[in-house]
Simulated scan of single mutants.
Amino acid sequence: MTRLIDPVLLRSLATVVRSRSFSRAAEQLGLRQSTVSQHVQRLEAQLGRRLLLRTTHSLGLTPEGEAVLAFARSVLDAHERLERTLAGGAVRGRLRFGASEDFVQSRLSEVLRDFRAAYPSVDLELSVALTGLLNDALARGELDLVLGKRHVGETKGVLVRRDRLAWVGLPQAAPERGEPVSLVTFPPPSITRAIALAALTAESRPWRITCTCAGLSGLRAAALAGVGVMVQPRSLIPDGLQDLAGSDLPRLADVEFVLDGPGLRREPGRTLAHEILNAEIWD
């Protein structure tokens, strides 16, 4: 090769792989889907290697693509470290950030830690609650940026990732066919609660709510005690609990993780949004 590889092309490849979709990658990057596709094609042409295996229903990496992705991540990480170094003194102010309860137990803390280290002049105010309550606070002007969930098909917010919901708990807590489903759940207006009840109702499955708690730690404790089963995104299954995929429970819809709020368009929220969109916090 006689030319350096454009980091823009590498970013498009990495985003496509992370989001598992050209359309979702385009939404995250603020580009047209055709532009993202052209970026990947240009990268493949420049390298003389096929990087992605695309079919009607799936998208994966070739062995060469795996190698290039590892290289791309290191290059993009170096670029982002340079940007943080140059912008650290310029990004300042107060950021009122709301995160859905699910994410507190995930690797979101790593993103916030890195953000605080890179931008010490930003005063971060963190609120943790159900997505519906966070959206209400956002509408009242009490938050700048929210990381929450939405139903598939909704358009509010910037898509971060789509994940499948799963029934989780102890194997012995899974009900036999015909038995009522004992449900451990967040209170309304929980999106995962609404999806779970809709799935049970659609199959005319009897159910009863055996535990309601606004905190994920409380739900996890109840599920670990065998009080019932709960619903969580597969990427956020709490430690000690299992995906009950083989049990006689109805299939659940997907859920989407999104960022929303005026902070997407101004600092310091725009910088934190960029960090979240480009972090591998669900791997």
Rank of each mutant, 00 (worst) to 15 (best):
T2K: 10
D6S: 05
L10N: 08
R11E: 07
T15W: 01
V17K: 04
V17T: 11
S23W: 15
A25H: 07
A26Q: 04
E27N: 11
E27Q: 15
Q33C: 01
T35K: 08
L43P: 09
T56D: 13
H57M: 14
L61S: 12
T62I: 01
E66A: 13
V68L: 07
L69Q: 12
V75D: 00
L76Y: 01
D77H: 11
E80T: 05
R81Q: 14
T85E: 15
R92D: 15
R94L: 02
L95Y: 02
S100T: 11
E110H: 11
L112K: 09
L112I: 02
L112Q: 12
D114T: 10
A117V: 12
A118L: 07
L124T: 10
D136P: 00
A139Y: 01
A139T: 05
L147N: 13
K149C: 13
K149F: 05
R150N: 14
L159F: 10
L159P: 02
R161Q: 10
L170I: 12
A174P: 12
R177P: 15
R177F: 15
G178F: 12
E179P: 04
V184I: 06
T185F: 06
F186D: 06
P189S: 09
R193P: 07
I195S: 14
A196K: 05
A199M: 07
L200N: 04
T201W: 15
T201V: 14
A202T: 05
S204W: 12
T210N: 13
T210A: 11
S217R: 13
L219Y: 09
L219K: 07
R220F: 02
R220V: 03
A225Q: 14
A225V: 02
G226Y: 00
V227F: 09
R234W: 11
P238L: 00
P238E: 00
G240Q: 06
L241F: 07
G246R: 04
D248I: 06
V255I: 14
R265V: 05
R266G: 04
E267V: 09
P268H: 07
G269Q: 03
R270A: 08
R270K: 10
A279V: 00
I281W: 15
